[in-house]
Nucleic acid binder design. Structure first.
Length: 335
DNA sequence: ATTCTCACA
DNA sequence: TGTGAGTA
């Protein structure tokens, strides 16, 4: 089959097919006499995959890497690419939704006032941009960096920190899950906290940005759903969870990112849901990404984000577990 | 009808 | 990440 028919069957331009060839995604044979490209059904199938991945937003170079790995039989690599792609799409959706909200808000302002409320517009636009910039945090989506972020977090494994296990157990006590309740563990790592909740009969979901962590987590806890994602774009729809927990992860965020993360936690929480945050609690002036340097021994450090709960309809408290470890717990009242 | 290259957004 | 024009 020649290029035009192939293009027609795939619903893309012939030019695009040549482009994919130029980028090394396909290598169709050429007819000796004419020099025309000749496409086999195999190649059409491959092109279909390319088109599908492209439609989901994956870059051409990403598709190239994915296809190479599939050829080597490493299917979980492709699975990882798709999961990653999903989380990127989800983040994009949340951003779109926020833009929509801002626009609605502006429409409301316009309808409610005679003149142009320029100052309000300006403030709204600023807020909106700020949130977008926070979400667009470093490029942790870069495949190469996933490994190093894994290393950064490896200390949170079983043996590493004194008080680690106690902090997790106290978190479970605070949430006090009823059997059958649905929970979300953000920055779940290898699923240690989620595992404790499952022992209590909770149905657990976990989110982590490291595929290595998720792989270990899945093998440790087959009954748990684990997704790639992060605090600022939690890959779940609204109002799903009875409780959201996180341990030894929140301090990686800057203060403003923590606020955004709390918004996300509240978003996926059911009306009377609970939140528990355990670990180091930093008092982090904004801008500093690595919060570990700013660990504080002062419980007032926790108040920086505990202040968020009250105005958002939560009853909250903060417990000091050890000189360095804290547990913030919150419960949302009736709406 | 198709290929290739170059410029362009 | 593609597209369009011009060419052979």
């Amino acid at each position: 089959m020649h290029i035009k028919e192939a293009a027609k069957r795939l619903g893309i331009s012939a030019r695009a097919i040549r482009f994919y060839e130029e980028k090394g995604l396909i290598a169709p044979g050429k007819e000796l006499s004419s020099g025309y490209r000749s496409f086999t059904e195999q190649e059409i199938w491959r092109l279909r995959t390319i088109v599908a991945l492209r439609e989901s937003g994956m870059s051409v170079s990403g598709i190239q890497a994915a296809l190479e790995q599939v050829e080597r039989g490493e299917h979980d690599e492709l699975l990882h690419y798709l999961e990653l792609q999903r989380s990127v799409l989800y983040a994009r959706m949340l951003e779109t939704r926020q833009t929509l909200q801002t626009t609605d808000h502006m429409i409301g302002l316009l309808q409610g006032s005679r003149g142009l409320p320029l100052e309000d517009f300006y403030r709204l636009a600023q807020d909106s941009r700020e949130v977008r910039e926070l979400r667009n945090w470093e490029d942790r989506w870069n495949f190469d960096e996933l490994a190093s972020s894994h290393d950064e977090r490896v200390w949170s494994g079983d043996s590493a920190y004194p008080g680690y296990r106690e902090a997790l157990e106290r978190t479970v006590e605070e949430i006090n899950p009823a059997p059958g309740e649905t929970g979300l563990d953000l920055g779940t790592g290898t699923g240690n906290l989620a595992g404790l909740f499952m022992e209590r009969g909770a149905v657990m979901n976990g989110v982590d940005q490291s595929k290595e962590m998720l792989r270990i987590c899945r093998s440790k806890f087959p009954g748990m759903t684990a997704k790639i994602g992060n605090f600022l774009a939690v890959p779940y729809t609204d109002g799903q969870f009875d409780f959201v927990v996180t341990s030894f992860a929140f301090h990686h965020l800057s203060g403003r990112q923590q606020k955004l993360a709390l918004n996300e936690m509240a978003r996926v929480l059911k009306p009377q849901g609970r939140i528990a945050i355990a670990g180091f609690i930093n008092r982090n002036a904004d801008g500093g990404a690595s919060a570990d340097k700013h660990r504080t021994n002062s419980p007032t450090g926790a108040l920086d984000f505990l202040d968020w709960f009250g105005p958002n309809g939560f009853e909250s408290k903060c417990l000091k577990l050890s000189p360095e470890l804290y547990l913030a717990a919150a419960r949302r009242g009736l709406p």
